[in-house]
Every structure is written in C-alpha cells, then in structure tokens.
C-alpha cells in the first residue's frame, strides 16, 4: 500500500516535469526565462555533490533545527499551562491571535537591531513563526482530553499532577506532534525566506542569492528543488513518527490509512 502511494506520488511529479520539459522544448515557455526541467534537474543533481552547496544546506538545517527545537521547548509547556488554566487562556487569547498573523520575516529589520549574530537573527524569526502551530495545537489537545477518563482517575483519588501525567499529556501528545510537524514546515519556509531577505554567511537562501547575482536562473531553481525535497523528507518522517507513536490516536480519530 505504501509502495503504491509512492508510485502514484512519483507519477504526479513525473507528469509535471514532463509537461514543463515539453513546454520548454516546444517554445511555449521561453527557456531564457524558465530553463528546461531537465537542465534544472541536472544542475540539482550536481548540487548534491557540490561541497559548497552542502555547506549551505547544513547551515539552513542548523538554524531550522535550532529554531524548531526552541519553539517546541517554549510552546509546549506554555500550551500545557494555558490549556489547563482556562482563565489565563481567555486573558491571553486576544494577544495570541494578534501576534500570530504577523509575518515573522517582516520582523527581520527589527530583530536585526538587537540580534548580535546573524544566526541569532534567523533563529529568532524562526522561533517566532514556529511557536504558533505548536502552541495552538497543544492548547486544543488539552481541551480534547476525555473528561470521563480524568474523572475516573480523580474518583480513584489521583491528584492533579497524576491526572496530568497519566491522562492529559498522553492524550494531548498526538496534537502536540501534529503541531510540531506543521511548525517544521513553517520553520523551513521562514529559514529560507530569512536567508533570501537578510542574507548571511551561508544557507540555501544565500546560495539562491549568489546564484541570482551570477544570473544563473537554472541554479536558483535547482537550489529551490532541494529546499522542496528537504521539506518533503522532514514532513514524511514526522508523519511516520505520528503514525508509529500514536496509532491508537489515528484509530480513534478514524484517519488510519
């Protein structure tokens, strides 16, 4: 079943690439503006063994992982806290809803004023963007806990902490992981956007800037392909983790594949 999904997914990609190639070869797309799909893929393959590009990839992955980790460390406890204290949540909700839609890349000039290193600048904007999906999902996860299970434990004399550890957190965990998965994609988008807008010593976005300055549209697109591939791999791994760790949840929610 997994195999057939992979085959279908690959077919979709292949059809799109073939269409782009045909459009380029027949002159429908100007290849001066939009290089042939085959050219871009060849360059992308070359980038996979280009040490300079690999350094850029690791720079991006580093700020991404750092940002995502800090976001999770901040947002999960805060989400648990707000989810268990309804009054505090009501008080903070408008503030959260106000801050959440602010595009974090718009904060770059502001953050640049206080961030003493380029890495700190990027991690800060990534954390800002990646916090919200984790926070909101954690809060929802805590709301969704089965009240009967909690009452049962309480009836048997378990304290608040025990109820939190034995029922609430395990029950909310799948929501938290979904939040982290969404945040992982957001963090990658923000990491590369920040590199494109702010630059830096290295990164996939910085590579794209250097390629652009050399008038190498093919290399800009080839680097972009890798950004997409990394996003796909991260998402796939996290979906797997969700399914593997929380099979019971998927069964209950009726989304088992």
């Amino acid at each position: 079943m997994i195999l057939s999904r992979v085959v279908r997914g690959a077919t979709g990609v292949a059809v799109l690439l073939a269409a782009a190639e045909v459009a380029g070869r027949t002159g429908l797309l100007d290849t001066q503006i939009m290089p042939l799909a085959s050219t871009v893929l060849t360059e992308a393959a070359g980038l996979a063994v280009d040490p300079e590009f690999l350094r850029d990839v690791s720079a991006t992955v580093e700020v991404w992982a750092e940002g995502l980790l800090i976001a999770a460390l901040l947002a999960v406890p805060l989400g648990v806290l707000l989810g268990s204290l309804p009054r505090a949540e009501i008080a903070l909700r408008p503030l959260i809803e106000f801050l959440r839609p602010i595009p974090s890349v718009a904060l770059i000039p502001l953050v640049a004023l206080i961030a003493v290193t380029d890495g700190a600048l990027k991690v800060t904007v990534i954390v800002y963007a990646a916090c919200w999906p984790v926070l909101v999902n954690t809060m929802y996860g805590l709301h969704d806990v089965d009240p009967v299970a909690k009452d049962t434990l309480r009836a048997f004399g378990f304290g608040r902490l025990a109820v939190l550890l034995r029922v609430t957190l395990p029950s909310a965990a799948p929501f938290v992981l979904t939040g982290v998965r969404l945040a992982a994609s957001v963090a990658l988008v923000v990491a590369i956007s920040a590199e494109l807008l702010a630059g830096g010593e290295g990164g996939i976005g910085v590579y794209i800037v250097r390629a652009g300055s050399g008038y190498r549209i093919d290399l800009m697109l080839a680097a972009t392909v890798w950004a997409g591939v990394i996003g796909l791999v991260v998402n796939t791994l996290l979906v797997r983790a969700e399914r593997g760790l929380f099979r019971w949840h998927a069964a209950r929610a009726g989304v088992a594949q």
């Binding site: 004023l113 003493v116 807008l197 702010a198 630059g199 830096g200 800037v209």
Partner: peptide, 19 residues
C-alpha cells in the same frame, strides 16, 4: 568573515547591533 546582507534594510540594523 564576509556575510551577505541583502539590503540596506538589513545592513543598517546589523551595523547598529554589531552583527
């Protein structure tokens, strides 16, 4: 250590912060 600063919107704050 050279690093790319994509625009003055970024380079001026970075000069001010010492980045």
């Amino acid at each position: 250590k050279p690093e790319i600063v994509a625009s003055t919107q970024v380079s001026i704050p970075k000069l001010v912060s010492g980045a």
